[in-house]
Amino acid sequence: MHLAALYRYPLKSGRAESLASADLGALGLAGDRRWMLVEAASGRFLTQRLLPQMSQLSALWSATGGLTLSAPGCSSLEVALPQADGNLREVSVWRDNLSVPDAGDAAAEWLSAFAGRACRLVQVPESRARQVDTRYARPGDQVAFADGFPLLLIGQASLDDLSTRVGRPLEMLRFRPNLVVQGSAAFAEDGWKRIRIGALEFEVTKGCSRCVLTTIDPQTGERSVDREPLATLKTYRERDGEVYFGQNLLPRGIGELQVGMPVEVLE
């Protein structure tokens, strides 16, 4: 088995960046989901669930931590990394409430025009990250703006199995993984507890429950009229009222990941 693909999503629910290599830290891949769009009035997080056009929003991460925003029909905008303790805004991600830096009015105006609603852009420094649910993690395990865990892994064979059942090829980016593994059997990752990629170890914590976001074409931003692939997933991947596809991971070390690295199941 080997690591077949690496993806980073600098802006939660924005377009993916395909990477050949990436630094891995306590919060996952460097620059992954460190930025988020929120409602201006409430601070509630915004995603493709409400704004499917976010699938067309590119937010390229720079080594300095800033972003370059771009979208079809829009001029690009450079956004600087805000001060970790300056211009804080109260925001919410699911059940978590936190205070994080606001990126300023220029970014807010650009994104509000794109989204068609008043919104703000916020960033989470490592010092303000969220605790991962301690039912599945240790105290001190943290996550940035991802839904619940720092990393998501999917086996290529699992997607191939789903594509066969749906009857058409499906894009991996519908499921927004960070890590894609090739060479395993379909859904083999369901039974893994610990893995090693190169020299780096990871704890496999729980399956990833899926939602309507998987029905959005990552290329066009349009929802599938037949509600695929969620409809097919419900026929064989539903458990206790949730539909699962992919596995959430916690990193147990820091270093560099590279596409092509061997993947070993430790437990």
Results as ranks from 00 to 15, higher is better:
Arg49Lys: 14
Glu228Cys: 04
Val263Gln: 04
Arg227Asp: 14
Ala40Met: 06
Glu203Asp: 15
Val265Tyr: 05
Leu51Met: 11
Gln48Tyr: 01
Leu37Ser: 04
Val143Trp: 09
Gly221Cys: 06
Leu173Thr: 15
Arg252Gly: 02
Ala4Ser: 08
Ala115Gly: 10
Leu81Ala: 01
Gly198Phe: 13
Met1Asn: 03
Pro125Trp: 07
Ala115Thr: 06
Arg95His: 11
Val212Asn: 09
His2Phe: 07
Leu266Lys: 12
Gly241Ser: 09
Pro125Asn: 06
Ser62Gln: 14
Gln53Ser: 08
Asp85Asn: 03
Asn178Ile: 05
Leu6Phe: 04
Thr47Met: 06
Arg223Leu: 12
Val259Phe: 04
Ala41Ser: 14
Ser224Asp: 15
Asn97Arg: 11
Asn248Ser: 09
Ile254Thr: 15
Asp32Leu: 00
Leu257Tyr: 10
Gly31Asn: 02
Leu60Phe: 05
Glu126Gly: 13
Gly116Ser: 03
Ala71Tyr: 01
Asp32Ile: 00
Ala137Gln: 06
Thr134Gln: 01
Thr235Ile: 08
Arg89Ser: 03
Trp35Tyr: 15
Glu39Ile: 03
Ser13Val: 12
Gln258Asn: 14
Gly140His: 00
Ala144Ile: 02
Gln258Leu: 09
Val100Met: 02
Leu69Asn: 04
Arg194Ile: 09
Val181Cys: 07
Glu238Asn: 13
Val93Cys: 06
Ala107Lys: 15
Gly31Leu: 03
Val166Arg: 07
Arg15Val: 01
Leu250Arg: 00
Pro52Gln: 07
Arg239Trp: 06
Asp32Ala: 07
Leu249Asp: 09
Phe245Leu: 11
Ala107Pro: 10
Arg33Lys: 10
Ala103Gly: 05
Leu6Arg: 13
Leu249Gln: 04
Leu3Lys: 15
Arg128Thr: 03
Phe149Trp: 03
Glu201Cys: 10
Trp61Lys: 08
Glu238Phe: 10
Phe145Asn: 08
Leu230Gln: 01
Arg128Ile: 00
Arg168Asp: 07
Ala118Pro: 10
Val243Phe: 05
Glu238Gln: 15
Pro177Trp: 13
Gly155Gln: 05
Arg44Ala: 15
Glu189Asn: 05
Pro262Ser: 08
Leu249Val: 14
Gln48Trp: 02
Leu46Glu: 04
Leu81Arg: 12
Asp190Phe: 05
Ser70Lys: 00
Ala115Lys: 03
Pro177Phe: 11
Pro229Val: 13
Ala26Glu: 14
Glu256Ser: 12
Arg174Asp: 11
Arg176Gln: 04
Val225Asp: 14
Leu200Trp: 10
Leu179Thr: 03
Arg128Val: 01
Leu3Phe: 13
Ile197Thr: 13
Ala146Asn: 04
Gln182Leu: 09
Ala20Asn: 13
Met36Gly: 12
Val100Ser: 08
Gly183Tyr: 05
Ser70Thr: 11
Leu179Val: 14
Asp141Gln: 06
Arg34Met: 07
Leu162Trp: 06
Glu264Ile: 09
Leu11Trp: 04
Tyr236Pro: 07
Ala137Leu: 12
Ala40Pro: 09
Arg8Ile: 00
Gly155Cys: 13
Leu111Trp: 05
Gln48Phe: 02
Phe114Met: 02
Ala157Phe: 05
Ala115Glu: 04
Leu162Ser: 11
Ala20Val: 08
Leu151Arg: 00
Leu50Asn: 11
Gln123Cys: 01
Gly167Gln: 12
Pro177Cys: 11
Leu50Thr: 15
Ser112His: 03
Leu266Pro: 13
Gln247Ala: 09
Cys211Phe: 11
Tyr9Ala: 10
Val79Phe: 01
Gly43Gln: 13
Pro150Glu: 07
Gly116Phe: 03
Thr214Met: 02
